[in-house]
């Protein structure tokens, strides 16, 4: 053989070896994937059948006072999480005495204690899952655990703890509450609104009003205004007007929400200030001012009407159409 042929064969052999090794790897990969899928299907089937069995046992326990099956229940370690999740699922579905009985069972089975211990886990996912489970129980005795988790480094864990504590009828330190919300809720508006709504409903709106008065530039100021408006907080009128007095200092979004808030509480005290925001640089603010003025019974000057009719922004044109339709209906 000449040099060229040897070279060719050597090269072909290496490529062949590579192809062979890859084929073996692919074969084992397919086997492993197949085994994984079979294992998962078996586990899902087992889980569903166990869920069904545990659901029946719990329903018998609740409605037929049959505790024999529950008492004789022996759980393998892999079945405890299924049982725990079934209890939690039924807790979600029921209220009243039956819910209390299920919570009692959850506690007696040691799940709550385990959840509390897991709040110290190094994995934030584990801490978050425990908090979500504990939140479902709505137990005031979990307050300390929630307060501890509000300072968690991971924002989702801290937010979940804040939301959980806001749903309980317990005292929360304002400084801790608002500083946590600023830290973790500034960019999660919906969650911040939910927490503040719970606080407003459970322990009064004064705390939110007082916070907004002192911190109108806070990242959660918009959420505070939204909640005060939604809960029709007439007592928030002063802080709304205080913000409206210097609209240039605040974001367009905050001014818009303040106008919405004044609209929701139907406070005519904001009329003079809303007249000024008709010339605001943001079309959203101008449009919200129009809605507010119209709804609290204010009137537009001829000059204002002319300017607004010439306004080309979609928001303002829509608001002007609204006014026209209201006037026609009247």
């Amino acid at each position: 053989m000449d040099n060229l042929s040897l070279e060719y064969l050597n090269q072909y052999g290496i490529i062949g070896l590579i192809v062979f090794v890859q084929a073996i790897m692919l074969f084992f990969g397919i086997i492993a994937t197949g085994l994984f899928l079979i294992g998962r299907a078996i586990w899902t089937k087992h889980r569903l059948s166990k869920e069904d069995e545990f659901n029946k046992i719990l329903i018998e326990f609740l409605f037929e006072s049959n505790t024999s099956k529950l008492n004789s229940l022996k759980l393998e370690f892999w079945q405890t999480t299924i049982f725990r999740d079934v209890i939690l699922h039924q807790i979600r579905l029921l209220s009243g005495q039956e819910r209390d009985e299920l919570i009692g069972l959850y506690t007696r089975a040691g799940f709550l204690k385990k959840d509390r211990n897991l709040l110290h886990s190094r994995s934030w996912g584990v801490r978050l899952s425990s908090l979500i489970r504990m939140d479902l129980l709505l137990l005031p005795e979990n307050r300390e655990a929630f307060v501890h988790s509000m300072s968690d480094q991971h924002p989702l864990v801290a937010l979940c703890a804040t939301r959980a504590i806001s749903r309980l009828p317990v005292e929360i330190d304002d400084e801790l509450l608002f500083s946590t919300l600023v830290r973790v809720g500034g960019r999660r508006r919906e969650a911040a609104i939910e927490v503040l709504s719970n606080i407003g409903t459970n322990s009064g709106l004064e705390r939110i009003i007082s916070y907004l008065e002192k911190n109108p530039e806070s990242p959660i100021a918009v959420a505070c205004v939204v909640v005060l408006g939604d809960l029709r907080a007439v007592e928030a009128s002063n802080v709304f007007l205080q913000i409206m007095n210097s609209p240039e200092l605040f974001s367009d979004e905050l001014i818009t929400e303040v106008l919405q808030g004044l609209r929701k509480i139907a406070d005519p005290a904001g009329l003079a200030l809303a007249m000024q925001t008709l010339r605001h640089s943001s079309p959203r603010v101008r449009a919200t001012s129009i809605y507010f003025i119209q709804e609290v019974g204010g009137s537009f000057s001829t000059e204002d009407l002319q300017t607004l009719n010439e306004d080309l922004s979609v928001e303002v044109r829509r608001a002007m159409q609204f006014i026209a339709s209201q006037r026609q209906a009247a």
Partner: peptide, 8 residues
């Protein structure tokens, strides 16, 4: 409304 109290 769900969740409901069975007695209610």
């Amino acid at each position: 409304k769900k969740p409901f109290s069975p007695s209610v």
